[in-house]
């Protein structure tokens, strides 16, 4: 079964993203929302881990949260942006959703 993992915490404050990345399996996806979008920053202390995960899973970020925080130009290559409708689509495309709060 495929899982959509949502992460809503900055990786610089909490370990939700780090923890989540330990459990993602091929075919699953990670969606960064709220402060979780800071996990998509390029050149940060988390970038290597996120890039590593992208070898197996797709990493998305909620565009509204990226824009709100002014980081659209600073994201890792390969992170895909979605709007809320895209978020809904991702939920439907995976068998389960697991929130890393």
């Amino acid at each position: 079964m495929s899982v959509l993992h949502t992460v809503n915490k900055s990786p610089f404050e909490r370990n939700g993203l780090e923890s989540c990345l330990r459990y993602v399996k091929k075919g699953s996806s990670v969606l960064l929302i709220e402060d979780g979008v800071f996990g998509a920053l390029a050149g940060s202390t988390t970038s290597t881990a996120v890039k590593g995960a992208m070898a197996n899973v797709a990493v998305y970020a909620l565009e509204a949260d990226v824009l709100a925080r002014g980081i659209k130009g600073k994201l890792l290559d390969g992170v895909k942006l979605v709007d809320y409708a895209g978020f809904v689509d991702l939920v439907t495309q995976h068998d389960t959703t697991s929130a890393w709060l």
């Binding site: 809503n8 929302i33 709220e34 402060d35 909620l62 509204a64 949260d65 709007d83 809320y84 409708a85 978020f87 809904v88 689509d89 439907t92």
Partner: peptide, 20 residues
């Protein structure tokens, strides 16, 4: 305090707009 209920609302709205 947290953005969670905003995100939840925006998600619900998008889901309903999408015919779900």
């Amino acid at each position: 305090t947290h953005q969670a209920s905003d995100t939840a609302y925006n998600f619900c709205k998008a889901a309903l707009d999408g015919g779900h």
